[in-house]
Design a protein around this nucleic acid. Structure first.
Length: 293
DNA sequence: CCGCGGGCCTGAGAGC
DNA sequence: TGCTCTCAGGCCCGCG
């Protein structure tokens, strides 16, 4: 489901339930998700206090007082919900369509506060892994990740150089987590629209012949940051699966300009274009051919 | 090294 | 109603 804004929304929702609390016990209700749980997965979590809950790209990272880090990825359909100790649902939980599918509650963290943090993931593309903080920079899951799009290191020069010489489309380059980490299909479509850049454009054209970032690279960086910040402020986008941990819907999907708006009128003032859809690298691309060049 | 297509899973929705 | 088909917000792997 989730791209960076949804993962960030989940992180903020889980913070009150997890930070400063101890994991008394972890239930894993099946052998694994995308890959099998480590044999010592639950044991390494038992009795550990969560000192902080962070995020890297689309990964949630819970820092433990043992020196370990719990890495969690939501895949396509993963979601968390927090259930208070008396068993009462948090506001909004009752209406969560997934909550009837308890068969997809795969991991339950029983916290010292009495709260339960429940991970539900029908498609099981999500993953969880405990690693030593000292070995974080060797972790294969994180190793190839590019810069955080909302971090200081991400700017037009960096994006242009990461795309320099790339023989692929701009759309594919932005989906490549080695170029920039955290974007997915929705926010790539939306950012390209805001930057007025064609998803078909060669990625290498973000740099000038002298290697300097073109103006379009600056526009694209601004567009990426603007759309991510706006989506985070809205609690992410709720299409099929994503909810905030409280069960509330994010509402950024109402602000999509092109994603899932095939056939609609281009929202750019004065543009008479129609939003089009086509398939690129196996994924749907939505765009306005009239104003994205 | 790079880019692409397939595969991993289940569920929702469209069309018949 | 129910079947089949397509598609879905991600990522890893193997192939050419």
């Amino acid at each position: 489901m989730p791209e960076l804004p949804e993962v960030e929304t989940v992180r903020r929702g889980l913070q009150p339930a997890m930070e400063g609390a101890r994991i008394e016990r972890t239930e894993t209700r099946r052998a694994g998700l995308r890959f099998p749980f480590q044999a010592d997965f639950a044991a390494r979590l038992r009795g550990r206090t969560v000192s902080g809950l962070g995020r890297r790209a689309k990964y949630l990272m819970a820092d433990l007082d043992s020196g370990d880090v719990l890495l969690m990825h939501l895949g396509m359909s993963g979601s968390f919900r927090v259930v208070t100790g008396d068993g009462a649902a948090m506001p909004g939980e009752f209406h969560h369509p997934r909550n009837e599918d308890r068969i997809h509650d795969h991991v339950v963290f029983h916290m010292s506060s009495g709260a339960m943090v429940v991970f539900n993931d029908p498609r099981r593309f999500g993953s969880m892994k405990v690693i030593a903080r000292a070995a974080l920079d060797q972790e294969p899951l994180l190793k190839g990740l590019g810069p955080e799009p909302l971090g200081n290191a991400f700017d037009a020069a960096m994006l242009a150089s990461a795309c320099a010489g790339k023989k692929t489309s701009l759309k594919a380059a932005l989906l490549d987590q080695r170029v920039v980490a955290g974007l997915g299909n929705i926010y790539v479509c939306e950012a390209l629209f805001r930057a007025r850049l064609s998803p078909r454009r060669l990625a290498a054209t973000l740099a000038t012949k002298t290697g300097l970032p073109a103006d379009r690279a600056r526009r694209l960086v601004d567009a990426i940051q603007d759309v991510l910040n706006a989506a985070i402020a809205a609690g992410g986008s709720s299409l099929r699966d994503h909810r905030q941990t409280s069960g509330e819907l994010g509402y950024f999907q109402h602000s999509f300009k092109v994603y899932d708006r095939e056939g609609g009128t281009c929202p750019t003032p004065g543009c008479r274009g129609t939003v089009q859809r086509f398939t690129q690298n196996g994924r749907s691309t939505f765009w306005c051919p009239n104003c994205q060049k």
